[in-house]
Each structure stands twice: as C-alpha cells, then as structure tokens.
Design a protein around this nucleic acid. Structure first.
Lengths: 209, 209
DNA sequence: GGACTTCCTAAGCGCTTGCTCACCTTCGGA
DNA sequence: TCCGAAGGTGAGCAAGCGCTTAGGAAGTCC
C-alpha cells in the first residue's frame, strides 16, 4: 500500500512523498511531528526548522507563514482521509460489509498515521477562518459517506437504526478518537484496532436476528 | 471524597461553587472558558484577567502561575468526572443497567459541561510533568470503573465481549469525544445524547439476539 | 569569466508573553 | 484614631515570538 522509507515511524515520513522540493517536505514532516507532540500554538518556527536541520529563516523560503504549514498539512491529511473513506465505500458487498470496511480503513489510518491524524482532528481551530471553512467543507463530505451507508442499510433492512444522524456522529466519533489515545508502544496494532472497531460498529447498527 | 455541592446549569459558572474566594473563582471560570475556546497555549494571562474584569497582575495574587490554573481546573474536573462514574456504578440493577447508567451520566456531563470537559480531555499535555502524572492516575481509575462493569456482565452472561480491554477503551472513547463535537446550539440535548449513546453501547456488548 | 538563479544563513526588528514590583485602597479590631 | 492584613492596580522587565533583510555559496548558461 504505502511505500515505507522508514519503519515504525508515527506516520510522518512516507505519506508525504508528493511534497516537493525535498527541503519543503522535510519542513512539513518536522511540522507534523512538532504540532502533534506539542500543539500548534506551543510549537515555534525555530523548533520546526531545527527538526528539519535548517535555520529558522529557511522556513520562509518555502512557506509564507507558520499557519500556511498547518493549512497544507490539514488539507493533505483531509484529502487522504476522504480518499480512504470513498475507496472503502465504493467496494462491492452488502451495506454491512461496506460499513465494516469503511470503519476498518478509517480506524487503521487514524492509528497508523496518528501523528498526522492528531493535527488534522485537533488543530482545526488554529486555522485562519477562510482555511477553516475550506476544511470544514471536506469534513462534511466524510460525514456524508457514513450517513449514506447507514441509510442504505436501513432501507434494505440490514440495519436497525432509529437516529441516523446521531449514529453517524457516533461512528465517526469512535474512529476519530483513535488518534487521541493510540500509542505505537501499546499492545494493539492498527489492524487489530480496525478489526475490533469494525465489529463493534456492526453490532451497534445491525438489525436483530 | 469530593463534595458535590451543585447541580450544573449549563454554563461554566455553577459547577465551581466550591472555589473561594470569589475573585479566585471568577478567574478560574474565565480560564476554563478561554482554554476551551482557544487552547491553553493560545490563551494569555491578560485574556483571562480581562474576562474576569481584573488587571493582569491580579491573577498572580490567587495563582502562582498560569499552569497552576490549568492544574486546578484539570484536577477539579477529573474529580467530578470520577465521582459521576462511581455514583452510576454503585447504583442497583443488572450489569446492563449499570453500564447504561454510567454511559448516560458520563456522556451527559461531557455534553452539558463541554467547556470544562474540553479542557480536561484535551489539555493534559500542557500540564507540568508531575501534575500530568497525578491526573493520569485519576484517569486510570475512570477506566477501571467501565472495565469492572464489563467484566461483571461477561461473568454473569449478560455481555458477550471477547476483548474487554479494547471494548473498555472504545466505550470511554465514545463518551469522551462528545466534548469535541457537542454544541449547545445543535439539535440534541445532553439528555438525548446520553440516552442515544447508552443504547448504542448496550448493543455493542449485549449477549444474544 | 561574468551574470543569473536557487537555496540557504546570521543577525536582528518590533512585538507579545508570563510574571514582578512598588504602591494604593478598603476594612475589621484594639 | 491608628494599624495591619487582604486584595487590588499601573508600569514595566527579561525572554521569546513570528518574521524580515542583507548577503553568501553553489550550480548553470552564455
């Protein structure tokens, strides 16, 4: 699936292969790590540049402001997340199978790329208003994917869900929160968490036998 | 045991009735609002003092540092959350009834006091190391409450749960994330969300069909 | 060799930050 | 009436912030 240039990284290395030139990519990866570790506002431009092995001024050759870095990270991260959801949605199978695949894939991403996911999910309010609006629009499309599958499942009788909006919220909520607690040194792999959560979500919505 | 003197009324004011003197309480409430809105690191001491209607220097009569304010908020918030969980756990009823009550009460608190809950759940890393350790110990006790009920339910056959640790994590995760997305202007009341989530969690763990 | 481009650094500017300090006001008790 | 404690303020300090600027090293084309 993803090309691995390093093993067991927090998800901050290989996923940014499209960012060029190389110095700009190094700065962006450094920013993801720093933002995830300390938060956007607690991270200094000197820290980001230092992690990338460059002087503070070098940052401003590739990015106009510190906020532009956050925006780029947030945009690329949301694009990737939405892509994962849509790919899982468009697979073959029953509503239940597609819902399980969506949850499995989304959870897997939040666990394996938890460094990026933490920035994506918890630093939204640090964006400038116009950038925030752009990202919020992307998030609504993610919500819509889950909602569509729930509606499909209810229509064909596979699911028994009285409050589709609330349940959509709960399913996404469960997936997103993985970014907060997931720890590489923990006992569970991204695959295991994905499988576990897919099973739990199916039990939440499936119609009784 | 912590004294639970007040019934929360929706704002971030009434829950802090035990904090004295009055100026110290006003500063604390102002800090909760500011931290929840912008985050700890983006909040200035001038902003906190301003919201409390005082000069920046007044803050340091009642608190040694800005971090002490965060610590006090985090400590009081976690005490309250743990109290709510334990009260729900110790009620009468089957394992399923007690689990439903725990989820209902915990979710209700995260929704109604979402301002406080946001600080409590998402600003842990901004605490000084020794304060962080103290809070982490409290959180482990919260985890234990949910875990005990799941174990009880599995033992007496009410629940069918293969991975108790992972399911404990998922249940708590679902509750905690409410603080992130809940909005007073939204269409759901804290009571409604609590009921919905209690039902979803029961379906996640209940045995049989 | 000289001019141009690309990418980087050392130094530092203007401003904001958490926090302090000298001093003021209010007020209950002797 | 005077006193000391408690609770407040205005001014400002040292440090750190995001960001800029002047200039240099390295490669490329003529």
């Amino acid at each position: 699936m993803a090309t691995a240039e390093s093993v067991g990284d927090g998800g901050s290395g290989a996923a940014w292969a499209g960012v060029a030139p190389e110095a700009a990519r190094r700065l962006l990866v450094a920013a993801v790590d720093a933002f995830a570790e300390r938060g956007y506002h607690a991270t200094t431009t000197r820290d980001i540049a230092g992690r990338a092995g460059m002087s503070p001024a070098a940052l401003y050759i590739h990015y106009k402001t510190k906020e532009e870095l956050l925006h780029r990270i947030s945009r690329l991260g949301h694009d990737r997340a939405l892509d994962i959801l849509r790919r899982a949605e468009s697979g073959a199978g029953t509503s239940a199978e597609r819902l399980a695949e969506v949850v499995r894939a989304f959870v897997h991403w939040h666990a394996e790329q938890h460094t990026t996911a933490r920035v994506v999910q918890y630093e939204l309010d640090s964006l400038a208003p116009e950038h925030r609006a752009e990202i919020v629009a992307l998030r609504r499309q993610s919500d819509a994917v889950v909602r569509r599958i729930l509606e499909d499942g209810v229509r064909d009788g596979e699911f028994d869900v009285s409050d589709i909006g609330g349940t959509t919220l709960a399913v996404l909520s469960l997936c997103i929160d993985v970014a907060r607690w997931f720890n590489e040194e923990g006992s569970r792999s991204p695959d295991e968490v994905g499988d576990l959560y897919a099973g739990l979500v199916l039990r939440m919505v499936r119609a009784g036998a």
